[in-house]
Design a protein around this nucleic acid. Structure first.
Lengths: 109, 109
DNA sequence: TCTATATTTCCAGTATCATCGAAATATAGA
DNA sequence: TCTATATTTCGATGATACTGGAAATATAGA
């Protein structure tokens, strides 16, 4: 992942509604969710949601496919993992310092 | 990690110079780096860097300690891991779908 | 106290972003 | 073709962010 891609992805996620959309899609898995369903789940006006979906798509974090009259969005898991890897890259100069990217561990405080 | 914390962290990282600072500190490890050294490494004016360091600190991503005349900044690795966990939380509804947060694997395309 | 070093705060100018109603577009079925 | 559903584009407004020089603050040593 290149710097600019990472900035685009982080910028896309750094917004209340977009972060909620992305997390919803991450949890929904590869099947994704229709725009209308997302709007209903998050209680967002259609035009606002559309703006945010476009933003996330431009950033490469989600993808779109049409299914009849609905547009289905799903998280791009490769992009997600790429971003995570980018942030933790060469952590502590390569020396294993800490669980660089621990798969959820119930908030190790 | 709460929603607002994640948004603050993502927003802090969604900027060219701040992302560079954070990655530099991640790679520097717990010893951290003095503000002046960071400015030199990234070729940034002191006032701009100070602005970005304050932003990252406010977001909880880095910490500050004084050492004589220098202020040493270091990455907060717990916060970093918390953010990563937050993004990948309940990925695919809990079903193991993909390496949710694979420790760097040389960009599995 | 005086001087040098390290860093931050202040400020103004410019640019970018979020919001959401209304209108436009795309698809489907009768 | 006509109507209904699903979603996007347009547009104006208000808010927030980045930049970097100059001045202020903090620490150290002689």
């Amino acid at each position: 992942m290149k710097n600019e891609e990472a900035i685009a992805a982080l910028g896309a996620l750094a917004q209340e509604h977009r972060l909620a959309v992305f997390r919803l899609l991450v949890q929904a898995g590869p099947d994704g969710k229709a725009a209308g369903d997302i709007a209903a789940a998050l209680d967002l006006p259609a035009s606002s949601l559309s703006f945010h979906l476009a933003h996330l798509t431009r950033a490469g974090l989600i993808t779109q496919r049409r299914e009849s009259r609905s547009l289905i969005y799903s998280a791009d898991f490769a992009a997600m993992n790429g971003l995570v890897g980018f942030l933790t890259e060469n952590c502590c100069g390569g020396a294993s310092c800490a669980p660089a990217a621990a798969p959820r561990k119930r908030k190790a405080s």
